[in-house]
C-alpha cells in the first residue's frame, strides 16, 4: 500500500517536471494527498493513546 503511495508521489513529481496541464497536475497531487491522509487514518483509529485529551 505504501509502495503504491510512493509510486503516486513519483508520478506527482513527473507531472510537475513534465508540464502536465494544471487540471491534470492538481488532480494527481490532490488524489495522492487524499490517499495519503486516508492511509494515516487507521493508525489513529487502531491506537489507544492513554492520554487525557
Amino acid at each position: 500500500m505504501y509502495t503504491l503511495l510512493f509510486l503516486l508521489i513519483a508520478l506527482c513529481v513527473l507531472a510537475t517536471f513534465r508540464d502536465w496541464s494544471r487540471r491534470a497536475r492538481l488532480l494527481m497531487w490532490s488524489a495522492t494527498l487524499v490517499l495519503s491522509v486516508l492511509a494515516f487514518v487507521p493508525h489513529i483509529l487502531a491506537h489507544t493513546f492513554h492520554l487525557a485529551l
Partner: peptide, 10 residues
C-alpha cells in the same frame, strides 16, 4: 515514518 516522508515530498 514513511507517511511523514510522503508528506515532506508532497
Amino acid at each position: 515514518c514513511l507517511l511523514q516522508r510522503m508528506f515532506m515530498l508532497l
